[in-house]
Amino acid sequence: MSARTKDIELHDVEQRFHARGSATGFLTAVHETSFTLRSDPPHIVSLVGQSGSGKSTIARIILGLQRPTSGTVTYGGKDIFKLSRAEYDDYRRNVQPVFQDPYAIFNPVYRVDRVLRTAIKKFGLTKSKARAQELMEESLRAVKLDPAQVLGRYPHQLSGGQRQRIMLARVHMLRPAFIIADEPVSMLDAQVRKLFLDILVDFQRAYGMTTLFITHDLSTVYYVGGDVMVITKGRVVERGPVAQVMHTPSHSYTKMLLASVPQPDPDKRWTDRIDIEEADREEAAPEVPTSDPARVPRP
């Protein structure tokens, strides 16, 4: 089975955290969630939800950064936390992230090149110095960055949009089968945001990378297209092709989300009033202090 035909499958994944102050002592971030990301045909799936909905937890679990309390995540049919050395290498090579915060993603003490060089070294892209340089420059150009203006710089010398595109260049170099993009544009300005999304969609098409696009912003979901899953309070409540979910939403939560997006058109102002109490109920509870998930006993 080649990498391009391996799927990521979530089976009844549940994630609980210790939470002081909640009735049960637990906070369930993700309730028994199952879905499959298929690598063939490559496509975009958006996971849309508000803060505290559990969407970022799902990203961390898929990336193997967090062990779920129960349930399994498999890659090519194997539990990602029980892979052999070779299987682990294959999984890491083919499941790669783009994270939210373009500032915190770079270690402030190193030049930005290090992120790319590490990828080249650790995934054995090439041993030759000249070829590595070529690879970096090629990938930076693919994300519309001028290598001369980026290489050798420190993170604080670049803008948020430039840094986030370096992360895209890293993806371009690695060409994984799956991109897990957790709120990649939420901290970018509108113009850079559009550029970033265009590149992401182009990559997905050109290199056949299945993309899990996690966002809180329905308009960006619409922009990238593909399929969408709506998640609230740790449960996926609606899924389907973007056009269908957006135009004929079936779940009341999806309807409310759609009705809340401020349309950038003064002629399309809201004429009705929102029920404040209902909105308050939907908003995530005030943040409950949670502790290390590693200490949650497995049931």
Binding site: R60, L63, G64, L65, D89, R92, V95, Q96, P97, F99, Q100, D101, A104, I105, F106, N107, V115, T118, A119, K122, F123
Partner: peptide
Amino acid sequence: PYVELAKVSK
């Protein structure tokens, strides 16, 4: 995040 990026970079 840079620690997490390091982890997924093996």
